[in-house]
């Protein structure tokens, strides 16, 4: 399976993501600059964390106008897995690939620590190797991760099982403790916590690795004969 890690000016978790896929997952991966307009050769798209365009205007607002985002949308429409982490999640929200928006953390602080997440939905291509209700330790590092959407959207997220991860206890004020959501089709996941920083016991936790392994398993099951 071949992944693209999209790099924007100001991305700073791109190399972590690259390392997670190449060295821990053992799959092919390229760092792809934001001005390309074709991602057809890739099977999975990863939008890393950071501060694209210095978070000017709103987090992710400028990045979502990048050339590459049309190709990311095309990949999402084709059903390919698209994962946005932290700033990547914010870009997916700004681009409309996921519903809702991010507000400043409730306590106005940049929160940087490992938190406990609950796997709410393990029937997605990103979470199939977790147990439903499993508690996992994944680091967060953000100032604007306070997820917000209107009541109607929240009801829809719940009804369609689009809430993949929640914080086991309140971290940033997010509505319903939402840490990660998918689109309706289930092939686009945005999450504030950083699974790519939790892929080896040496990093303090390897709980994030199963997320990447789930993506590969899903791809193998549908693309490889006798998988």
């Amino acid at each position: 399976m071949k992944f693209a890690v999209i790099v924007f000016p100001g991305s700073n978790c791109d190399v972590d993501m690259y390392h997670a896929v190449k060295d821990e997952l053992g799959e092919q991966v390229d760092l792809v600059w934001h001005d390309v307009d074709n991602l057809d050769q890739y099977d999975g798209i990863l939008l890393p964390g950071g501060f694209s365009y210095g978070d000017y205007l709103r987090s992710g607002a400028i990045a979502h106008m990048s050339n590459v985002m049309a190709a990311v949308k095309k990949a999402a429409e084709a059903g390919k897995p698209v994962l946005g982490v932290c700033n990547g999640f914010q870009i997916l929200l700004e681009s409309g690939l996921l519903p809702g928006a991010m507000l400043r953390n409730k306590n106005l602080k940049f929160i940087c620590r490992t938190v406990e997440l609950t796997v709410e939905n393990n029937e997605t291509m990103f979470t199939s190797l977790y147990e439903k209700g499993e508690k996992i330790s994944i680091p967060v590092a953000h100032g604007e991760g306070n997820y917000y959407c209107d009541d109607e959207t929240l009801a829809k997220l719940k009804e369609n099982n689009q809430i993949a991860f929640t914080y086991a206890s309140d971290v940033n004020g997010s509505l319903s403790d939402i840490a990660g959501i998918t689109n309706e089709k289930g092939n686009v996941l945005g999450m504030m916590p950083h699974p790519e920083r939790a892929v080896d016991d040496l990093l303090g936790s390897a709980d994030g690795l199963k997320l990447f392994q789930s993506i590969v398993k899903h791809w193998r099951d549908s693309h490889v004969v006798n998988a």
Binding site: L57, A61, E94, G100, A101, L103, Y148, D150
Partner: peptide, 8 residues
């Protein structure tokens, strides 16, 4: 399109 985010 850009200057505001209609969600919030």
């Amino acid at each position: 399109k850009l200057l505001s985010n209609p969600v919030i």
